[in-house]
Design a protein around this nucleic acid. Structure first.
Lengths: 179, 179, 179, 179
DNA sequence: CATGAATGAGCATTCATTCAT
DNA sequence: AATGAATGAATGCTCATTCAT
């Protein structure tokens, strides 16, 4: 599965050939079919793996938010950092689940929903504006995380910590200069 | 090309068959090859189309920003709305160029760069913080626009105006409640 | 189709390879799929061909029986000869439809039904016993024709005429010696 | 072997998979190869089993004919009934040996030969016509038995006794109505 | 006596692309 | 300008069979 993940993430679903996977794995094609029902099946298996891990991590970030007693900014940054760390540690699987799969949108929407719930609590706690569409904010966060992962994290330009800090500041205080 | 765009945006590159395109176009396969060098070529042509249009539109939004005399928020919102309008009016081509193509990342980076330049001016004008990484902000904006297009705009849940307004407010003033 | 019929009749369905068919036909595999949807499809097409031809021939033999004014034995022998001739002229297709296909039993039952109808008329005309199960007689005739085709006709040991004459005599007068 | 017989008779040689046989037998594939040299081998073994049993039974029917002191019709009917009984009691193996195997024709020819010998005796005894080709009669009997087994016996429509009686009457006295 | 794990060899099918007209 | 007819080159998948234990 590691090898398959690598190939899929490198070449995409169609351009990844079973023959290439098994060659790199030093087994034969029938062996592949001993463990996986089909090309689609192993791809889906990888997606499900990522899906589960992502769900867990976002859930963790939720708990973290509640438990932490430090400042709001720090708490939120930590939550986001958790996600970036997942992407960093599982680049290949993440690329499949978050960018290559047809389930990607659904996965992102699911993630957005989790984040939205989190934000709702913050609004109830009086930290955030109540006059902003949280579904859009959540969706925006997902979009940002996804794109920064692709362009900054995986490009090696930024660390999870840096990214999460910058995002958090941006989201909390905005761009505008306070006079 | 319209038909090809439709098919590509519906089924993706690999699952779009030349045979299907020509059938819908009521021509034969050799006729297709009379006008396009290959499957890749027509795909690339569609991408280039989008690329050019996107570049133009982002440039316009830059000009708009400069020319507009109304408030900062309104000016920026207008700029972003222009992009969303492009996505709305050219859904199929946009889906190809911005999401399906392998050039997508490059296109987005190019767009981010344009936006970054714009932001730099605002910083110079003293509107924005100077202690924030504008390349990240630009990248974030691109990520947000992309994802909201997919989940809100094309889903018919929000209009370009609504989206651009919400985004702008979020980016300018942030989430945090001012006391 | 001629070549396919030959291969199928020689090797059976499974041991007939598309690659062999197209090689003998001097075309490539895609060309095959231009004209036939699948291996199953061309096999079924051959079966249907035989089915139709057999039905027609048995129907003809029915008419012939009614029209002919010569002796009963001769009339019946002619009817049966028609069937043997079909088998002789279309050995390959017949082997597929009558012996190799999974529809073979159904085809034979259909043939038996046609023959039974014919026999019923003869009984009504007073030529035959009425105290014999005609469905069995019809089924027996089918069994005989099938097996003699395989062992005598296609072995080149007997002609349609000889076979039909012998069968007819056997069926009409039986084996027992009249004292 | 029982399970293999069942599978072969249900699905034919090619569509029967060793994996399916061993699964139903609750053993593994290597275990299969411990007892049978190959797929062909077990198939052949089943055929030989049937072949031997058939030979024995037809031989018995020959003896029966000689020994029995009752009327000719009854004696012959008994002989044929013995065959039908074999088919009834060993449906699966019989289907393999008599219908599915490539040896089927040879087996049938062998059976026809035995029957022919039997008939020759009856001719010599003066019971039957001498101006009829006994090889055809024997072959016809084989064809009838085979096909009636398939369509009447195994369909549960007739018993061995009924079938043998009808066949015998038909063969002895024919269809024609005696005035 | 039995098996978990593996494989060699093959086969139907698909699809972008092109030739001759 | 257009096409009917064809193909080269793959690729996923299956199944009987065997090795090492």
């Amino acid at each position: 599965m590691k090898i398959a993940a690598k190939q899929f993430s490198l070449y995409g679903f169609h351009d990844t050939k079973i023959s290439a996977i098994v060659k790199e794995a030093n087994v034969t094609q029938p062996t592949f079919y001993l463990y996986f029902k089909s090309k689609d099946a192993i791809f889906q298996e990888l997606i499900d793996l990522f899906k589960a891990e992502l769900h867990k991590r976002v859930e963790q970030s939720k708990l973290a938010t509640g438990i932490e007693t430090s400042g709001l900014l720090q708490r939120i940054a930590n939550s986001i950092a958790l996600i970036f760390q997942l992407f960093q540690e599982n680049e290949q699987v993440a690329r499949i689940g978050f960018f290559l799969s047809e389930d990607a949108i659904e996965i992102k929407e699911q993630m957005a929903k989790q984040i939205e719930e989190n934000l709702t609590v913050e609004v109830e706690n009086g930290y955030f504006h109540s006059n902003i569409d949280l579904s859009i904010v959540a969706s925006a966060i997902v979009g940002i995380i996804g794109h920064l992962t692709l362009t900054k994290l995986w490009a090696g330009l930024k660390t999870p910590d840096e990214l999460s800090k910058e995002i958090t500041r941006l989201f909390l205080y905005g761009l505008i200069r306070e006079n």
